[in-house]
Design a protein around this nucleic acid. Structure first.
Lengths: 129, 129
DNA sequence: ATGCACCCTGAAGCCACTATAGGGTCAAGC
DNA sequence: GCTTGACCCTATAGTGGCTTCAGGGTGCAT
């Protein structure tokens, strides 16, 4: 499997795959005579794991931790659970922040009567007073 | 007013104020004999405007646009309205994405029975299959 | 004279990629 | 055998919005 195939199979850009390799998230694959990277099923599995973790919002450092944990089959999954729980909390905090923002913006827009800047409620709300 | 005073009054880090100046968001202030920046009320107003816009989630480019618009008192506020509307849409999109994420994480955590990694539902969900 | 809080500049670092420059490889078609 | 075009390679710089760091200077009190 060449890098483009891996890219298509995982929905990951080629540059991102090379970036993950440089970051040590994916082991360096063997090469063809023409210096092309050659991947196997293990690479595909690992990259899929990384992408799903990223899609769930984990940082690359968290993904690294999850990968390490997932290799240690006999260990308790408490650490995994804690990582996921922390991530959930962080997502919930972000949602709350954005909802507050949403309310503020909606309220500003509600007050805008489409006149001139001088009487614009939005600009007024931003300007200090 | 020295940079530290402006920092305290606006809740902006000193380094960030210097960064805004370098970015052209705040005009370069005059200096004391000792080369310290000296700010006045106009600077305070402008920085407050920037911070409030940032708090509402506008990018620095959008802030630049808002600042330009706010100087043009006679212009219609349609452009301001459009910027705010776009920002609201973007916030709403982010909320939806995060809520999907929240549901997924919560569901994973729900299934975790705190056993070993080998039987961990979270790792299982991340691993390809 | 010494300490301390504050100020200065310029450059590098953060995250997770993305883009760009400048090239090499390989199979197909003429 | 030569070209075309899709693909691959490396190394470096750029993105946004700051933050941090190195290495110094200022100003006031003790």
């Amino acid at each position: 499997m060449k890098i483009g195939d891996l890219s298509r199979l995982t929905g990951t850009r080629v540059e991102t795959i090379r970036f993950y390799e440089k970051e040590g998230l994916i082991p360096a694959p063997s090469r063809t005579g023409g210096n092309y990277r050659v991947y196997d099923q293990a690479h595909l599995n690992r990259l899929s794991f990384i992408r799903r973790s990223r899609d769930l919002g984990f940082t690359l450092d968290q993904v690294r931790a999850l990968l390490d944990l997932s290799d240690d089959r006999l260990r308790s999954c408490g650490a995994v659970d804690e990582l996921a729980r922390e991530q959930l909390r962080s997502v919930e905090r972000k949602i709350e922040d954005l909802q507050a923002l949403q309310r503020e913006l909606a309220s500003l827009l509600n007050q805008c009567s489409q006149g001139t800047i001088a009487e614009c409620r939005i600009i007024e709300a931003l300007a200090p007073g």
